[in-house]
Nucleic acid binder design. Structure first.
Lengths: 243, 243
DNA sequence: TAGTGGTCTAGACCACGAC
DNA sequence: TCGTGGTCTAGACCACTAT
């Protein structure tokens, strides 16, 4: 194992070093979503630490939703469609009735130079290019969200070659470009519907909308998606759990 | 330690049983906020399990923000004013500049029978009484929030005997009634400012507001506070971190 | 120097799933 | 029956804090 104190200040516990090296396997695609990874005992032998230390690393990654452990079966790399994973990033919930995932309809896809807000949010150089996707989303045939997604061109080559943009784009990012969304930060405001919003959502101009600005981050903590959603919250609310 | 399988289906790991019994000490006030609790070794001896099992229980409680551990010093019961604890439940953040806690001004305090919404949110019997507190909150002298708080009378006797309602009410709940807020669920919507809202917030009638309905839960998971906040989000946003 | 929590190890046994 | 992850233990050593 690497020396802990080589620089004098960079001490990291062994299990954190192990965690980082295992996350690297995910980043580099050596471990693919859905794959069964080696057992604790095998990993312990391979890495050269005790089973208990491997366990602490795996438990940490499980807490980050990167792995799924199943007693008696083994440890698997988490997939974007894994159970709650779907709703992990989708917080809009019907006021009454079951939670559901909305349908989507892409209205526009274009390639342009990133504007200032996009460059700042996605940490891009001046002159960088991005994809812009506009789509509207509905729940039970009721218009719900009008949103625009911005993606760095470099991370998503040939996005315009897609035949269709599927409903669950994070699954697409993972399968087609090996981009894993690990976490996201959302900023919410109440805004007024513009004429465009009103047309897309079938509401009055000036109606109150919930605006959600999301920056989604990959496994290395780099921003890879900027998304602005404007939502009608007449029959739906944004659920936030504070623990 | 208690028998694990007495009912046949109620198996709980030892460290969970230990956690529950230690949480009980918090609930019953045997351990007070800010207090130094016994060391791992002492607890292990007292409870009759290994130090490792005690550690798992304490680590779980630390993850729930119930305890604060300090290497070399010991383990302390968390206090409502502990560092991030302040912002744990206050998610409104200035668009620019430092995060700050708003000032508050109570405009009304009354005692009434709970209405249907309040009874449902707080799980109260028909005819139960509640306190209703109305207050407006400001950040840097700018009106920000108009909110109404509902509390069950049973849990908060003599609320009207207070000389003043302080800024941080969760600290008050803890110190005066030994009610600890452990977690909360918030439901957000975009709404339109009523004439009352407009007066309280100094905005136009019909302006878009962010409405936050919060139900706050105690250590036992029972709802103890219902709060409806209506917020001007012109210079501020609600921050939600999805991991 | 003594005591605390933090890390790391090694090994035992249990519960679960597949065969 | 076997291999997996889950629990539990016991003990060693380290890093931090107070005295």
């Amino acid at each position: 194992m690497a020396d802990a104190g080589e620089a004098g200040f960079a001490y990291k516990p062994l299990y954190v070093q192990v965690r980082d090296s295992l996350v690297r396997r995910l980043i580099e695609g050596r471990w693919q979503p859905g794959q069964l990874i080696p057992s604790e005992i095998e990993l312990a032998r391979e890495v050269g630490v005790s089973q208990g230390t491997i366990r602490k690393a795996l438990d940490a990654m499980t807490a980050e939703n990167l792995l799924v452990r199943r007693q008696g079966r083994g440890t698997y790399v988490a997939e974007p469609e894994d159970g709650r994973m779907l709703f992990q990033f989708f917080r809009l919930t019907p006021d009454r009735g079951e939670r559901a995932f909305p349908t989507s309809q892409v209205s526009d896809l274009s390639r342009s130079r990133a504007n200032k807000a996009e460059r700042e949010a996605l940490e891009l150089e001046d002159g960088s290019e991005v994809w812009r996707i506009s789509r509207s989303r509905a729940l039970e045939a009721r218009p719900l969200i009008s949103e625009s997604i911005t993606l760095p061109l470099i991370r998503f080559p040939d996005f315009d070659r897609l035949e269709a943009v599927p409903n669950n784009v994070y699954l697409l990012y993972s399968q087609r470009w090996r981009v894993t969304i690990a976490r996201a930060v959302e900023k919410l405001k109440a805004v007024t519907a513009s004429p465009d919003d009103a047309a897309a959502l079938g509401c009055n101009k000036g109606a109150p909308l919930l605006e959600i600005k999301r920056i989604a981050l990959d496994l290395e903590g780099r921003p890879v998606e900027l998304r602005v959603s404007r939502c009608l919250t007449d029959h739906v609310h944004y659920l936030s759990e504070l623990r």
